[in-house]
Amino acid sequence: MYYKSNNAVLDQSIVWNVDAYKIKSVVTYVMDVLLEKIEYPFWIEKRIENHVFGYNSKKYEQLEKLYTMAYTTLNSLEKNYIVTNAALDEIAKLDDNWNNNGAGSFSTKLIGKCREIVMQLVAEPFICPTACSSIQFEYEKENGEYLEFEIYEDRIEVFLDTLSNGEQEFDLKGISAIDKMKQMVVDFYGVYL
């Protein structure tokens, strides 16, 4: 389905607007100073002589590898919500009458609001567009409990179905609406002791 695709993100090319060599030189220099890994006692003269920054390249490369390894693992486990963001990219591209039944397109403001919300949520939702110009966020647990938010520009409509309290429907409005939505997702998954 179109909104499950993440090609839009994967296909993006990286554009460098800065001089990567200069940045590397500065980072190298700072690392040398911070880590006191300067190889030569007269490093300033060496630098002038060689027209390059003098540093203990072997040690620096080892450190760089270690940090890269650790943070790559950490980042891979972070909540980056690639699928949801790609789905929002796709929803943003929809024109009027995208469902062949007269549904309208989605405003930049609404898409922006959804992007803000997504990054604050503790769990990645399944998202889809609706025919009434809102964007729906869904969570479902294996036991059948279900939480749904319909995001509009000015409000958030909530539908919650839990084993303990049954079905509930209400709206969230005002400055604390997103905080309340975040809290509902926290409550939906709970904490185990």
């Binding site: 650790a70 950490l74 998954y189 904490v191």
Partner: peptide, 10 residues
């Protein structure tokens, strides 16, 4: 350098 990461929803 991080040695361990353990993530759940909450």
């Amino acid at each position: 350098v991080p040695r361990c990461v353990w993530n759940d929803v909450n």
